[in-house]
């Protein structure tokens, strides 16, 4: 199931990138996709974690919210950079994320890092260490809306 979907995705990727539809190139694409699928199966990375197809629908709902959030934070950080007094107050905060799986934790940590103004420095199962550009940005990541939304996307509870 996961292997088949990985193969289809890889072949679609090949077709979109090449844009040529000659027999030789179509066959070469199929061969490459098959080789990658076999290699990943040998590495045991194709499962719920490595190729999370159960998350597709919820992730497509999550991205627009995340992008809106990124634009908001980027606007704030741009104003900080351009203001003459440079009003920063860097902080380090620790908190415990609510995600259960590696995929959920990675999504959460990467979302925090993508948002300008906050960067995940350390990410483990029990604790995130986040560097915030200002006190409010740092405090904003603890038990945040993002945390709840990623847990919902992850779909374990």
């Amino acid at each position: 199931m996961h292997l088949a979907s990985l193969g289809i995705v890889l072949y679609a990727f090949w077709l979109l990138l090449s844009g040529y539809f000659e027999p030789f190139l179509l066959a070469a694409g199929a061969g490459s996709a098959l080789a990658v699928v076999l290699l990943s199966r040998r590495m045991h990375i194709v499962d719920r974690e490595g190729h999370p197809i159960q998350m597709i629908a919820s992730v497509l709902l999550y991205w627009p919210w995340l992008i809106k959030e990124i634009f908001k934070c980027a606007w704030d950080v741009s104003r900080i950079i351009l203001s003459p007094s440079l009003p920063i107050s860097p902080v380090l905060v620790r908190f415990k994320p609510t995600q259960k799986s590696q995929v959920g934790l990675t999504t959460h940590a990467n979302s925090i890092t993508l948002t300008p103004g906050t960067i995940t420095v350390e990410a483990t199962q029990d604790e995130f260490l986040v560097h915030g550009l200002t006190r409010t940005a740092g405090a904003g990541v603890i038990d945040s809306e993002m945390d709840q939304r990623v847990s919902k996307v992850e779909g374990y509870r």
Partner: peptide, 8 residues
């Protein structure tokens, strides 16, 4: 703090 700027 420079990393925050680069992420913009």
């Amino acid at each position: 703090t420079r990393m925050h700027a680069a992420s913009i």
